[in-house]
Simulated scan of single mutants.
Amino acid sequence: MEGDQGKVWKRSLSSSSKSNSFKLRSPSLNSVRLRRIFDMFDKSSDGMLTADELSQALSILGLDADPSEIDSMISSYVKPGNQGLTFEDFEALHQSLNNAFFADGQEDAPVSEEESQESDLSEAFKVFDEDGDGFISAKELQVVLGKLGFPESRELARVEMMISSVDRNKDGRVDFFEFKDMMRNVMVRSG
């Protein structure tokens, strides 16, 4: 059954390429990231992620998925009596999708935790660096924060302050090394 569901998601998310950014290789970070994603998608903040909330989140991220297929996919993960996915259900769904997308019968070459973090940070940086110039500007950060629904995105001055707080060379932009330092500091504090 889960194999069929993986095929449905592969078809419905056909606009997304097979990217390692979905496969978070660091287990300790994976749970924290999934929790943040779950909380971001749970617009009603009721601890349940409905098919509508998931559909809206995927749409915002640019992934076209048929709402009826999403409903069908998550229904087997929703516990009886619940109106949506709990965080534990969401983790199980993520694991199933991870297996469907990345379990091709081939094991990945062993990757050190440092290489894994570097790769994940590079993928995250690319999300923010919308024009691909190797820097995150205040405007780019504002756009991404807006897509994610953060209220800070409404005030460019606040976004500029966020940039300046990590902009070590004071050029008004964040390069990958500044981004990496910032993210490692965040991970150390939250870990």
Rank of each mutant, 00 (worst) to 15 (best):
M1K: 12
E2D: 15
Q5F: 14
G6A: 13
V8C: 07
V8S: 06
V8Q: 10
W9M: 15
K10A: 12
S12T: 08
L13S: 15
S14A: 07
S15Y: 08
S15D: 09
S17V: 15
S19D: 03
S19W: 01
S21Q: 14
F22W: 13
F22G: 07
L24Y: 09
S26F: 03
S28C: 07
S28L: 05
S28I: 10
S28V: 08
S31G: 03
S31D: 12
V32I: 02
R35K: 15
R35H: 12
R36W: 03
R36D: 00
R36Q: 09
R36P: 00
I37A: 13
D39V: 11
M40A: 11
M40N: 13
M40C: 11
M40T: 15
D42Q: 00
K43S: 12
S45V: 10
S45L: 10
L49P: 02
A51E: 07
D52F: 07
E53V: 04
L54H: 08
S55L: 02
L58P: 07
L61I: 02
L63T: 14
L63C: 10
A65H: 05
S68V: 10
E69M: 11
D71P: 04
S72H: 10
M73G: 05
S75E: 13
Y77V: 10
Y77C: 12
V78D: 14
K79H: 12
G81E: 01
N82I: 04
T86F: 07
T86L: 12
E88M: 08
E88L: 09
E88H: 11
F90G: 09
L93G: 09
H94C: 08
H94N: 13
Q95T: 13
L97D: 03
N98I: 07
N98V: 06
N99F: 04
N99R: 10
A100N: 02
F101G: 03
F102Y: 07
A103E: 15
G105R: 06
E107P: 08
P110Q: 03
P110F: 09
S112Y: 04
E114K: 02
E115I: 05
E115Q: 04
S119L: 14
L121S: 03
S122V: 04
A124V: 03
F125I: 05
K126N: 12
K126L: 13
E130W: 03
D131V: 09
G132T: 09
F135K: 13
F135G: 05
I136D: 04
I136T: 08
K139V: 06
Q142M: 05
V143M: 01
G146R: 05
G146E: 03
K147T: 10
K147R: 13
S153Y: 06
S153Q: 06
A157D: 14
A157R: 15
R158A: 14
V159P: 08
E160W: 09
M161S: 14
M162K: 04
M162I: 12
I163S: 04
S165P: 08
R168V: 14
N169W: 05
N169F: 03
N169D: 15
K170R: 15
K170V: 09
R173F: 11
V174R: 02
D175G: 06
D175H: 01
F177C: 10
F177M: 13
D181H: 11
D181R: 14
M183H: 01
N185W: 00
V186S: 00
V186Q: 04
V188N: 01
R189C: 06
S190G: 02
